[in-house]
Write a protein that binds this DNA or RNA. Structure first.
Lengths: 104, 104
DNA sequence: TTAAGTAGTTCAGTATTATTGAACTATAGA
DNA sequence: TCTATAGTTCAATAATACTGAACTACTTAA
């Protein structure tokens, strides 16, 4: 079974967070997760209509995960991803909202 | 004479901005510029006490410049760098402040 | 007006990171 | 059990970052 490693809340760094968001595709993924009905989407659900290789997509989700931005859990055949809003707001209050305001 | 190319205000993108800030050294440089007396510092002035190669430093300033974060002008023997606060606040109101709040 | 020093850039090579196709793992349903 | 789905991991290549060495531009002093 696939086990995902998640960074401890206190180990999330500003530079890594910004670096992970420094990519149009990853910004879009995060936006889609935040806009989704219940805050959780599968990988393909969070990155629809892309002509990107699925290994590349998988890489982008890993970058977001490794930076502490999202949490991934296996649910049946798919992975459910959600933004770690609570952790992020404790570590950097208001930051994510301030950034994502500018992502259309 | 060295001429620096600066991005038009409207061409500054969120992803490039975040990507440029996604590095501890560049965050520190920006912080030092913002904290400086009159908002302008030479390259070595903005990145003091580093054991970094000067070509690496030069590279970091270029990344910040190419992302539209700073403006560089040649003044005598040194380069004066300043944060493009006005441009950034027109393009992404409040964003820079929200981010830099977390850079100690 | 040369000589030497300072600040930083550019170049070219190496190191790291991103992207991708192919093969693989895990689960679901017929 | 067989097939399909969703995504990961691997290994190779493509693109970016980092660095030492050489260079440019300006300043100061003889």
């Amino acid at each position: 079974m696939t086990r995902f490693v998640h960074l401890a809340k206190e180990d999330i760094t500003l530079a890594a967070l910004l670096g992970a968001l420094g990519d149009p595709m990853r910004l879009k993924i995060l936006k889609n997760l935040l806009d989704s009905r219940d805050g959780r989407l599968s990988c393909s659900g969070a990155a629809p209509c892309t002509h990107m290789a699925k290994s590349t997509l998988s890489h982008h989700f890993r970058v977001l995960r490794d930076a502490g931005l999202i949490r991934t859990t296996k649910q049946g055949v798919e992975n459910l991803n959600s933004v770690r809003c609570d952790d992020l707001n404790e570590r950097f209050p208001g930051l994510l909202k301030s950034i994502m305001k500018f992502q259309p």
